[in-house]
Design a protein around this nucleic acid. Structure first.
Lengths: 331, 331
DNA sequence: TTGTATGCGTTATCAA
DNA sequence: TTGATAACGCATACAA
């Protein structure tokens, strides 16, 4: 059985309330008793019980980061940004996976049962309505990559749609026309697809319906899709993969089928993860400021927890030219 | 104010205990009242308060994963293994960073205040004694990459020392003699260094004292160290980097200094992270079963939580031959 | 089958 | 400056 405040009180020969005061520096306690309490606490190895404390105070000192996945380069980079800012402001945090629908009951427990004082959500598994009903002044929320903005919910996102549109523009300016897409499921995929389709329309590119490949954002699924695609005899001039990992899988597949990148086919990625520089060929891609997004989300959340207003940040993206995509002819 | 069991009781016209029984399927409740309670609970949007519940039951349904870092390829892979097993067994979990000494008070809070029902620790920031004092039947612990084994602490590790020794043996068999090392801080680094030194001794390799470079396990620090090292005019036949990320940084540096890998200098890594296949040249490295370590740790913890005994698993490593290290001459 | 009452370990209110 | 004591929301032994 753990040692409680009661034991400390007994050992120090004072009442429990005095112990509580002394330990929390609240109330006025005589120097003498304070010392006695502190000593007794240390001697007994007293550690406050977080559960009991939270039950009273309705605060527990942790903020939660709930992401679709905890590992992986993209989520990792965001997490790094969050962690750094949290550390800087001396705020403790816990992270939990918040993946496919089936297990959001688990996560919403953490939120609904007030086991965190605030939350950053980077997952579309929790519907807007639920988030809206959960967030309030005593538990503000920041959503990432999602356009949800209320008095107690802030948003940090990039404009996926216009980023994808600019990729289309870039492709046109390089003189390409016949283009394929490699997208993925979820909100992000839809937006990027929408933006790119607009560009296809606007710049008179050619994107046949069955040239929109769908992977699962991972290297291997992109590899498989690309192999199948090329086997059918398709030969696009350029492939726009909606994230870098899929761009890499795509390039690996092309290489394996003896198609040179970028000489025969160009490939453009998105995200600008660390590996995209080291990859051969290095990836032309759209930089998403993942680290900064994390930092910003953390900063905003902490600000809201101090009573600050909610806000909505749309961070800029930038097209980074590297080796995987080269100009064919000028217009 | 959140809706409590009391409100539900009132709405359903029964006592709080009946509500508790009905909601937890404990005790015997008439079908009629059970239905009334369930309906009232749903209508009011009742969610049990985790804090209060835990305060009573001394359980809270979460296990904790405390790692030196939450992101990064190595920790990510371990986390993936843990997560999968937890999901399979339907166990919820939270993760928290457990980095340098300064913030272990934060983490041990989660442990000591019993905010988790069990823990997996992958960090040497929490000293053995602390862990020993914290772990008990109601909160078992699994440590990773660390040799600590008590009735309530299990260990999952690989034999770093003998793995490093075998790298030395391999190097000798390839006909190399003059070798450099690129290690990192902490327990792992020490062990790998020790094992490798034994091999140097046993196989009569040559490892000058100032050829033991020390990085921080990251790509960039390895890059810098290697540049400095080569600038001094040193030319080893082979460099043993104690993890893959440093091996990559090392190779990048060599390339930048127009030294070919493996033609001029061979490089061996450790871990066998996913990127080591894709890297050019692909990495000769020691495979550490990171995913399996995670899985095993999770499985063991859950088993202990069900009353099973503690255990110690030493998982095998394997040297994977790829492109970054080639034979110079046979012995 | 149901309700009453107690306690989990704290904090905080109120007297003393 | 201190000490009883009442909550916090829940589970459960016991009584009815």
């Amino acid at each position: 059985m753990a040692v409680t405040i009661k034991h400390v009180a007994e050992a120090a020969g004072v009442s429990v309330s005095t112990v509580s005061y002394a330990l929390n520096n609240s109330g006025a306690v005589s120097q003498e008793k304070r010392l006695r309490v502190l000593e007794a606490a240390k001697m007994l190895g007293y550690v406050p019980n977080g559960m009991a404390k939270s039950l009273k105070t309705k605060k527990n000192g942790f903020i939660g980061y709930f992401a679709f996945s905890l590992y992986g380069v993209v989520y990792g980079e965001v997490l790094r940004g969050i962690e750094n800012e949290m550390e800087r402001q001396n705020q403790e945090m816990i992270a939990a996976k918040c993946g496919p629908m089936q297990d959001i009951t688990h996560i919403s427990r953490l939120l609904r049962e007030r086991m965190v004082d605030g939350a950053i959500i980077f997952s579309d598994a929790i519907p807007d309505e639920v988030l809206i009903s959960l967030a309030d002044a005593s538990c503000p929320v920041v959503v990432m990559d999602r356009d949800l903005y209320t008095p107690h919910i802030s948003a940090v996102l990039v404009d996926n749609k216009s980023s994808a549109f600019r990729v289309g523009e870039y492709i046109r300016n390089l003189g390409f026309r016949r283009v394929a897409c490699l997208t993925g499921p979820g909100f992000d995929g839809k937006q990027r697809m929408a933006g790119f389709r607009e560009a296809v329309e606007a710049f008179d590119l050619e994107l046949p319906e069955d040239w929109c490949l769908v992977g699962h954002w991972q290297e291997d699924t992109a590899y498989e899709e690309t192999i199948k695609f090329i086997r059918k005899g398709n030969r696009p001039e350029v492939i726009f993969a909606h994230n870098d990992e899929m761009a890499m899988g795509c390039i690996r597949a092309l290489k394996d089928m003896l198609i040179r990148v970028p000489e025969d086919v160009s490939v453009i990625g998105m995200d600008d993860i660390a590996a995209s520089t080291m990859f051969t060929p290095s990836l032309t891609t759209v930089h998403r400021p993942l680290y900064e997004m994390g930092e910003m989300a953390a900063r905003t959340l902490l600000d809201m927890m101090r009573g600050g207003p909610s806000s909505k940040f749309i961070l800029p993206t930038a097209l980074i030219q590297r080796e995987s995509c080269i100009k064919q002819w000028a217009v």
